[in-house]
Simulated scan of single mutants.
Amino acid sequence: MLPYEALEALARERLPSAVFDYIAGGSGDEATLADNTAAWARLRLRPRVLRDVSSVDTSTELLGAPLSSPILVAPTAFHSLVHPDAELATARGTREAGSLLVLSSRSSRRLEDVASAAGPWWFQVYVFRDRGLTRALVQRAAAAGARALVLTGDTPYVGRKRRNRGDSALPLSDEDFLANLEGLTHRALAEQAPDVTFQDIARLHEDSGLPVLVKGVLRADDARECLLHGAAGLIVSNHGGRQLDGALATADALPEVVEATQGRVPVLVDGGVRSGRDVLRALALGARAVLLGRPVLWGLATGGADGVRQVLDALREDTAHVLALAGLSSLSAVGADALAPTPGR
């Protein structure tokens, strides 16, 4: 895989400018977008020496799914904007890399079709204004083989983007928009409901029979409340800097959330992960896995399914290399002592 900056630049050359800006941009002044990557870089590593790292194992397991590495594909919308095979290519590339796909409820291909191309997958959920539409979607996802639901909790309204040119600037057909919205009578009913609460965690579990993870958690009190209402896992996320600008970086929020869960459920993290060093930093802070959003889309834009696989394989290989240099032969060997103490932690 090309270095992230080169891959992004190549995607920029190949995509319409409105599509590139839609994916690359953040909300407000894009302060959180920038801080997501910077926060990982602020963390310094403490390598061990004279350890046998002739073999490094990056494999792991999440909610019963065996995976080649702790690197998953985050939910992102409308992959038809970047490649004609859309989420079908993303699913194939993710499967071939031995990873797990979190499929967006705003995918541009029917979830049943994506499921047939995927390995293990989870289904991301917005609670729509039309609650019946939400219920039907999660039941379809369960029937199609999703292993879990991921409730996005940080989007009662869509954040205003600095580079926003409006939906009309995106080459998105009604067929793409409506791929998973069978029976929709009015487009506004597919907007996120602003009255979502912790009680919706249990409702989604009851409707689907699937474990429910909550994405968008940045605070200990919210983490505890999610667990109280039955969450099977948490994803520390600020939506890639696309919602509340000025929100703290996920690397800064992660320790508080991990401490609040006390090991009862897996904690995952996304936002600004670009290297094996970042993966090690996340694991040392207590995350079980990381999720990639923009890098996967750039891989899809530049190489289709093979591009997605190459992004995931390259980051897995870089993670193994970094683990070896840090004197760690497996993920289970990673602890908090892999990081140098920082002020305030």
Rank of each mutant, 00 (worst) to 15 (best):
P341N: 05
S329A: 15
D35T: 07
S275Y: 07
D245G: 01
E8F: 06
G246L: 02
L331D: 01
E112H: 07
E30G: 01
D176N: 14
M1Y: 08
S332Y: 02
V150R: 07
V257M: 13
T250S: 15
G183K: 04
R131N: 00
G304M: 13
S54N: 13
G293Y: 05
P3W: 05
G145A: 02
A338V: 09
A39M: 03
V150W: 09
P171R: 13
V125C: 14
A193K: 05
P84G: 09
F177H: 04
D57P: 03
L88G: 02
P211E: 12
R109N: 05
A260I: 11
R147W: 06
A338S: 15
R135Y: 00
L67E: 11
R160G: 00
S27I: 03
V311Y: 11
A39G: 01
D306G: 14
G246H: 00
A74M: 06
S59E: 13
A251L: 05
P211W: 07
H79Y: 07
L328T: 02
R46P: 04
A143N: 07
T302P: 02
S116K: 14
F20E: 10
A249P: 08
R294V: 02
P194H: 10
A282E: 13
R281G: 01
A260E: 07
A231C: 09
L181Q: 10
A6F: 04
G327C: 11
A253N: 12
A9L: 02
K215D: 08
G293D: 10
P341V: 00
S27P: 02
D21A: 15
D130S: 09
R92F: 10
L285M: 14
A289T: 14
D221F: 01
S237K: 12
Q192W: 01
A305I: 10
R48C: 02
L133V: 13
L181M: 15
I71Y: 10
G303T: 06
E30N: 01
T76Q: 05
V150A: 13
R48G: 02
L7P: 03
D21W: 04
E256G: 15
G230M: 06
V217Y: 10
A77H: 07
L7E: 09
R131T: 00
Y4C: 02
V114G: 06
